[in-house]
Design a protein around this nucleic acid. Structure first.
Lengths: 156, 156
DNA sequence: ATTGAAAGGTGTTGGCC
DNA sequence: GGCCAACACCTTTCAAT
């Protein structure tokens, strides 16, 4: 199943194309990697079946949802129980304002990347939905001025 | 063009479906929102033309690229010239190891989310590709233990 | 594993409601 | 705006190599 080592250049080329544009017709993908449509289709199917190609998602302009700006919470916990942390992260990532949650080593334990309407919204998020939890010691907030994301992975 | 206010429930339903699965056939999307395939097709076209529906991307398992773990760099700059910062971010997000770069307010100026093979890889990234720059004062590194991302936006 | 063709399904357009 | 129907295109499968 997970034969990552056996990927050749054509596989990586296909992966790169689909990361850039998941909607590109198989026929065109095949043309770009110099393969017949059916051979390309076979490869894509294998990549999906082996779990390497996980899923495809459309990207929507946050403004359509009334997002005014993005922010980050740097959160410190007073306990590091695995179960508690896992539960907290799952709950938080389910909030409509949360774009991502990251559990890290260091001074801060968790970074939450947020999308909010305005400052009042950010304030109520911090004080009503986050700080209320007993095991959260401290939250520092930062405004996100710019965020650039690479949706295409390249060989390291 | 950018008539965000005019989106109705059906539009939001379509957006949610496509954020969850960009590859769902138009026919099935139409069925889920109780529309004929052509009417649904029209709406999706409008959403694309107005820039609300931006693009679609396949997600690939990082392990396929030999990624061992993820890390974060918290970077402090000694100057905050707009041009310098913009240039740095663009350059950095082009590196194969960089998943995202965030420019924020606060103690740290930039957070870089990284994917690396191993510790040696992380070390060489820090000391050879990042610290070498004159305007970078300090880098703190954190290991990412867990990262949860919401790829579907919901109404705030 | 790739090819080429055949069959079935889907996207897309235009006319009508 | 939405629906229906027709056409064109694409996906998907299979035998053969």
């Amino acid at each position: 199943m997970n034969s990552y080592a056996q990927l050749d250049r054509t596989d990586f080329a296909i992966l790169e194309i689909l990361q850039n544009n998941a909607l590109l017709p198989n026929k065109q993908v095949a043309a770009e990697v110099n393969l017949s449509p059916s051979a390309c289709h076979e490869r894509i199917k294998r990549l999906k079946d082996s779990g390497i190609l996980k899923s495809s998602h459309a990207v929507v302009d946050p403004k359509a949802y009334g997002v005014g700006f993005e922010a980050m919470f740097f959160i410190q916990l007073d306990r590091h129980e695995a179960l508690l942390v896992e539960e907290f992260m799952q709950e938080v990532v389910g909030l409509p304002e949360v774009k991502s949650v990251t559990l890290i080593s260091g001074v801060y334990d968790i970074i939450a990347h947020l999308r909010v309407r305005d400052i009042d919204h950010l304030k109520s998020l911090a004080f009503e939905k986050f700080t209320k939890r007993a095991y959260i010691t401290k939250i520092e907030s930062s405004i996100v001025y710019d965020f650039k994301e690479s949706r295409v992975q390249k060989p390291l």
